[in-house]
Nucleic acid binder design. Sequence first.
DNA 1: GAATACATACTCGGATACTCGATGTCCGAGTTTAATAGG
DNA 2: CCTATTAAACTCGGACATCGAGTATCCGAGTATGTATTC
Lengths: 131, 131
Amino acid sequence: MKFSKATNYALHTTLALVSASSVKPIGVQQLAKSQDVSTTYLSKILTKLAKAGIIESASGAQGGYRLTRNKDEITFLDIIHAIEGTSSMFECDFVHGDECLIQAEMKNAEQKMLQYLKETKIVDIAHKQST
Amino acid sequence: MKFSKATNYALHTTLALVSASSVKPIGVQQLAKSQDVSTTYLSKILTKLAKAGIIESASGAQGGYRLTRNKDEITFLDIIHAIEGTSSMFECDFVHGDECLIQAEMKNAEQKMLQYLKETKIVDIAHKQST
DNA sequence: GAATACATACTCGGATACTCGATGTCCGAGTTTAATAGG
DNA sequence: CCTATTAAACTCGGACATCGAGTATCCGAGTATGTATTC
């Protein structure tokens, strides 16, 4: 029951992109260097973020990644869902009568966390950090 | 980022023990049968619950498992911590200046979930189910 | 000077390898209860 | 009867086996930019 390292990479990379805030894309090499990750692996993670519509890639020389949306809209939950998927953390596949009451409570609990992550934006961290 | 099946087994087994509420212990075989799990595997899970002080085992004939504490005190969080461990779901091992702000937010989010699980008791489910 | 060719700097995505935890199984050992046998 | 022995019904815990997701690397392919070459 842990978040993957990929999620951590994704969050930090997104934060870097938000902080950079330039129109010009940032290369994977530069992003990978600051996190001590191989470029190939990081690019795989960023591909997921791109498919989720959070960032976009520019190929060729001077290429790299840049944000697509307004930076104010990007929440923690967006990133996490892009990397970890959107399926529930708890799945009871037993054969009960109707729905599993245990599962219902677990989903309630998960919802509490998701709600917080939905309200928390990456840009808020960027502001705190720059001070 | 998923809860393990073991946690599901542990929750259901605890619920069964709470519902049974007898002084006499219930054998692993009976518990395993209702969840379609092997007895040896379930006993491994229950050993964790026993080490956490939630249940206790009685060996020998007529042996089995039974609750130790008052059933009203057992929360979802107790079970989950016993099985999944108490370490945080998100660990940033990068070398930032001081503490990682991203990690701080992730821990806040996790705390929301843990708080809910701490307030939710197994016995509440047992009551709903018996109606 | 314009067009062409070439080199360079990037990302993309498939294939592959490695590692580790989750999930189970097997089995010998220890423990309690019940049954049985001997005095 | 009472006691000792044996059988049966359990849990305990270590040692494996298996499997899949997470993590990571390698490399060929595609694409955009910059530079040199040719006419």
